[in-house]
Simulated scan of single mutants.
Amino acid sequence: MLSLKDCLDFCDMEQEEISAIAQHEHIPVIVAAELCDTLLHTEEGVRDLHSMLLDNIATALEHGEVERANELSRTYQHFQTSHPLAPRA
Rank of each mutant, 00 (worst) to 15 (best):
4 L>F: 05
4 L>I: 07
6 D>N: 15
6 D>R: 13
8 L>V: 11
10 F>R: 14
10 F>V: 03
11 C>T: 15
11 C>W: 10
12 D>Y: 09
14 E>T: 07
15 Q>C: 12
16 E>G: 10
17 E>V: 10
18 I>H: 10
19 S>R: 11
19 S>G: 12
20 A>N: 05
22 A>D: 07
23 Q>K: 10
25 E>A: 08
26 H>Y: 01
27 I>P: 05
28 P>E: 04
28 P>F: 04
30 I>N: 10
33 A>F: 14
33 A>S: 15
34 E>D: 02
34 E>P: 00
36 C>V: 06
37 D>I: 00
37 D>Y: 01
39 L>D: 01
40 L>N: 02
43 E>R: 14
43 E>S: 14
44 E>N: 12
44 E>M: 09
44 E>T: 14
49 L>W: 04
52 M>I: 00
53 L>S: 03
53 L>M: 15
55 D>P: 03
58 A>T: 08
59 T>V: 07
60 A>L: 03
60 A>D: 02
62 E>K: 09
63 H>V: 00
63 H>S: 08
66 V>K: 11
68 R>P: 00
71 E>L: 07
72 L>G: 01
73 S>Q: 13
75 T>M: 09
76 Y>K: 02
78 H>C: 13
78 H>Q: 11
81 T>E: 13
81 T>Y: 10
81 T>K: 12
82 S>K: 07
83 H>V: 05
83 H>C: 06
83 H>K: 07
84 P>R: 13
85 L>S: 08
87 P>Y: 09
88 R>Q: 11
